[in-house]
Design a protein around this nucleic acid. Structure first.
Lengths: 206, 206
DNA sequence: TACTATTTCAAACGGCAGTTTGAAATAGGA
DNA sequence: TCCTATTTCAAACTGCCGTTTGAAATAGTA
């Protein structure tokens, strides 16, 4: 059975995740969270020991969700050609363009952190980002078997950058002067295009 | 002669630019700005009609500074090979890694805007980003002479993404688990590496 | 110098933020 | 059923926020 306190906790987490993703930490007030969660204002301090504690929990949950999502598909890569594996990776990275789902919200929370990382985030990153970077590094290693470690890391980041700029700036790119409308079919084409350029860049064959 | 009011205005602008770049709009208080600028608190409302007005001015100045910096070098590209021109562009995009100067601060102010753009920023972007995008588009057109417009735009954004991820996440990348230390010599190598992969990806010859 | 417009200043205002409080309600075990 | 620990609640507290105020200082002009 779910204890009543767990219900409240869960309601707060859900509301907070949405609001933090949309408006960031500073832009989200406790009063806004409790209004959305239909709980009393003091519940946040009772269950999370303050706004900071709540944010830490949301961040942790987001991180867990994201890495699980990527690591879940990491095993499949081995059965594919390096080109197929990279294309699949790119498609997965572009997923937030397609869906306004939980994963997209998690990425958005992380985007807030890239400008000015909170200590909580720094710690989380330093402790748990390794597996995710490992997936990306393994991917590019298949194209650069003789490269040293630093080159592999840079290649992995480079790969992430090509996708993240479209995800991060989706809203701006949709407006003038770019007018890049990314509806469902266009996203497939975009993933394919990015994959092709990247594969060729790393010495693969498109 | 510089009127005393101009001195105060300039001091406020300078302090505000630094603080907005470092902490964002919400994270910067008027009291922090005036303390740094050594002016009275009411001066901001007197000279800029409030915090919003000051931010608008800072944003405009940052935008002017950035586009001027890139457009100033756009003419030189014609005299280079397409490979040289792209490498120079990448080097210029990575410049904030090297220096903690005005240009870097301007980029940082823009980074805050990418997560949740303010109306002021949207307007500025829609009105004045075209020349900058034009530079990037012209650059990739030399590699993709037969591509349609949408492909060119995507290629230009793709190019920007490869650089911006290193600029935007410099601080995180320096720490664990990546440990990508970007001192001066490493930045030159990074620019060269990115350029090479990009050129090859677009069908050029490294 | 005398007058006017501009600019500076300290202080206070109203509002919203996160947090605390202590009582009321509820749940679970003896 | 009674007792205790947990959980909810409305209200108040403290502090920082952006803005306003009206007087004092300053600069420019005749």
């Amino acid at each position: 059975m779910t204890r009543p306190s767990e219900v409240t906790r869960e309601r707060i987490m859900k509301a907070a995740e949405r609001l933090f993703a949309e408006r960031g930490y500073d832009g989200t007030s406790i009063r806004a969270i409790v209004a959305r969660a239909h709980v009393n204002q003091a519940a946040i301090n009772y269950h999370f020991e303050g706004k900071d504690g709540l944010y830490r929990e949301v961040l942790r949950a987001a991180f867990r969700g994201l890495t699980e999502d990527q690591l879940a598909h990491a095993g499949e890569a081995g059965a594919m050609s390096r080109e197929e594996a990279l294309a699949a990776f790119v498609r997965r990275q572009l997923r937030p363009l397609l869906a306004r789902d939980e994963v997209s919200r998690h990425i958005r929370i992380f985007n807030w952190e890239t400008v000015r990382p909170t200590p909580v985030f720094r710690k989380l990153l330093s402790e748990e980002a390794a597996p995710f970077m490992g997936v990306a590094t393994d991917l590019v290693r298949r194209f650069l078997p003789d490269a040293d470690y630093r080159t592999l890391v840079v290649a992995a980041i480079w790969l992430l950058g090509q996708c993240s700029i479209f995800v991060r700036n989706r809203e701006q790119l949709a407006g003038p002067p770019v007018e890049l409308a990314l509806e469902e079919t266009a996203i497939g084409w975009l993933a394919e295009t990015i994959s092709r350029w990247t594969i060729v860049g790393l010495g693969g064959t498109a």
